[in-house]
């Protein structure tokens, strides 16, 4: 079962690019540094529009680090910088003229631990539009975002209640609603279900399938079954130890999810998804 002769072996340098893929992001030879430390090396990826791209791999392989490059969240960490390129459509995300605040408005993010603001549910959703100076009818906008996040029916009678009164799963959907409210094109999700129980996880996964109709989603997950269930494409990362004993994250394989999980072309991917390591 190890190697099928009819499978093309694709290295990370040559990502699988079927004609149907309409790239929102083009990652070219991306390396991410924290100070002098090269956390992730030489990543090439294409992120398809209105697809769900999963990033999997063992702890410390740099998948979250890469995710946080897409909305320039790493800029907030002193000393963090990148080499290589991320094109958003045709614009260099790290170009001199690019305003990270504008980037983050278009590319939303949902975090590992639900982090609603300690404010009313309504104000959580309205926060993004307000700070972005959107003057539209806020009530409609809030309802729309909460509806899209499959939370409206549960909270419509208690919009003035503190968001922290919600359950963990509801809080995470609120965070998704909050991200949607600023009308992003892309939503980055950094292990969005790792703090949730299985039922809440299922709800978020169902929600992702809904959101896929309108948004491009990138998800980092520790849960391989989740990646297999929800994503169209999967990127498998791992960490190499170089001759000096330093760990560097690396993209091993990037392909359609069905291929990654049925006919991985790299031995390391296969070992990982079959549970032999990591």
């Amino acid at each position: 079962m190890t190697s099928q002769p009819n499978v093309t072996i694709r290295g990370p340098e040559v990502p699988n690019t079927p004609g149907s893929l309409d790239p929102v992001f083009t990652v070219e030879d991306l390396s991410v540094f924290y100070g002098d430390y090269e956390a992730v090396r030489n990543v090439d990826m294409l992120i398809g529009r209105r697809e769900i791209t999963a990033m999997i791999g063992p702890s410390g392989c740099g998948k979250s680090t890469v995710l946080r490059c897409f909305n320039r969240m790493n800029d907030l960490i002193p000393g963090a910088h990148i080499k290589g390129k991320i094109l958003y459509h045709d614009e260099n995300l790290y170009g001199d003229h690019v305003d990270p605040i504008e980037v983050r408005r278009r590319i939303g993010m949902v975090f590992q631990k639900p982090n609603p603001f300690p404010k009313a549910i309504y104000d959580n959703v309205a926060y993004g539009p307000r700070v972005n100076g959107i003057k539209r009818n806020m009530d409609d906008l809030v309802e729309e975002a909460l509806t899209k996040a499959a939370l409206w029916d549960e909270v419509k009678d208690k919009l003035k209640q503190n968001a922290l009164s919600l359950s963990g799963g509801q809080q995470q959907r609120l965070c998704i609603a909050r991200a949607i409210a600023v009308k992003p094109e892309v939503i980055l999700m950094d292990e969005p279900c790792s703090a949730l129980d299985p039922i809440a996880t299922t709800k978020i996964e169902d929600l992702m399938q809904e959101l896929r109709q309108e948004y491009t989603i990138l998800i980092v997950t520790h849960n391989m079954q989740q990646a297999a269930r929800v994503s169209d494409r999967t990127a498998f990362f791992t960490a190499d130890v170089d001759s000096a004993g330093v760990r560097h994250g690396r993209l091993v394989e990037f392909d359609q999810t069905t291929r990654i999980f049925t006919k991985p072309s790299d031995k390391r991917t296969e070992d990982y998804i079959t549970g032999r390591f990591g």
């Binding site: 969240m73 983050r104 975090f111 631990k113 982090n115 603001f117 926060y127 700070v131």
Partner: peptide
């Protein structure tokens, strides 16, 4: 104030000033 709240605010396109005044100070 947990850093997660700041990140949540930055991720919505809020500037440092707005994050400070509208999220950190109230929290």
């Amino acid at each position: 104030v947990p850093n997660g709240l700041r990140e949540g605010s930055y991720a919505l396109g809020a500037s440092k000033m707005l994050t400070s005044v509208r999220v950190v100070v109230p929290a």
